[in-house]
């Protein structure tokens, strides 16, 4: 696949910014579940991420914020190697998940089993609710009916949607409302028993009430999972996340405790963005 790995970074940044990064690392006191160092990503000639470094902590919610086109989705998708699917993507730098460098291993399937993903628009398959949730486990070779039933129920309960769908598990998943579909998407991700769940604007296609339900769910889920969420909604980031990273033009401008980012941002650009004085 169009991916290439180099252990050294190609692009040198000026020292002032490097200083900035080491400062950030001090903030993340505990051992990181995911640690990203000097990540650069190119779509062909076009560079989309510049020397991104950050540590994502276990069983915390990390929010990625920033204006449109700044590389949030691109960054998120490097964490489960979804960018591998795009022709001409080049990546340099290191991403270590649980002390394993994910771009040095070729087992993408294992990685994606461990790092689940929920997309911006609910993307359930055109099959029944049950089959959607059982899809991942079945792909892993689980055939036992009882076991599958158990996984499906647990996952749907885990995504707080069991009561709404338990009587219609065998009906098409596409008949659900958008908000219900998104929670089934979360259930589908949970069914893989991942350790990390990536969410790319999971509520941007939902109404306020469904959004609230998903947010509650996220808050609830963080005791079991490490969650990384991209959002355009400042209040959402403030409500659900423990840490927030502010992206601008492919760089991390600031990464800190969510409270700090919103109450006393260090960088003027962060301040402008979180107070809404920015693009």
């Amino acid at each position: 696949m169009g991916c290439m790995l180099m252990s050294t970074t190609v692009i040198e940044r000026n020292n002032a910014e490097k200083g900035n990064f080491s400062q950030m690392k001090q903030h993340s006191g505990e051992a990181a579940k995911i640690s990203v160092t000097d990540l650069n990503l190119f779509y062909g000639e076009k560079q989309a991420l510049y020397n991104v470094s950050l540590g994502i902590q276990e069983k915390k919610v990390t929010a990625l914020i920033g204006p449109s086109g700044c590389g949030k989705s691109t960054f998120l998708r490097t964490l489960n190697r979804m960018n591998d699917l795009i022709d001409g993507v080049k990546i340099t730098g290191d991403i270590v998940v649980d002390s394993e460098n994910i771009y040095q291993s070729n087992d993408v399937i294992k990685l994606r089993t461990k790092v689940g993903m929920v997309f911006q628009k609910p993307n359930l398959f055109p099959m029944s609710i049950y089959d959607n949730v059982a899809y991942g486990p079945r792909m892993q070779g689980i055939k036992n009916k009882k076991e599958l039933n158990k996984i499906v129920e647990e996952s749907l309960r885990g995504a707080a949607i069991w009561d709404e769908v338990k009587d219609r598990l065998k009906t098409s998943a596409l008949g659900l409302s958008g908000g219900q579909q998104q929670r089934v998407c979360i259930a589908r991700a949970i069914a893989m028993k991942p350790e990390i769940i990536l969410m790319d604007e999971p509520t941007s296609a939902l109404d306020p009430i469904s959004t609230l339900k998903v947010e509650e769910l996220i808050t609830h889920m963080k005791k079991d999972y490490t969650i990384v969420i991209v959002t355009h909604n400042m209040q959402q980031a403030a409500r659900v996340s423990d840490k927030t990273a502010f992206f601008l033009n492919g760089e991390i401008i600031e990464y800190d405790e969510t409270d700090h980012i919103f109450s006393m941002p260090q960088d003027q650009r962060t301040k402008d963005y979180v107070t809404g004085r920015f693009g």
């Binding site: 489960n80 979804m82 699917l85 399937i109 294992k110 994606r112 089993t113 689940g116 993903m117 997309f119 628009k121 993307n123 359930l124 398959f125 899809y135 991942g136 792909m139 892993q140 998407c185 589908r188 991700a189 893989m192």
Partner: peptide
């Protein structure tokens, strides 16, 4: 999005083609 959804669930490319 169907392909992405399937691959993100740890399905292989061939699995994705035939199941989704």
């Amino acid at each position: 999005t169907y392909r992405e959804g399937s691959l993100a669930l740890g399905a292989s490319q061939i699995g994705t083609i035939f199941k989704v």
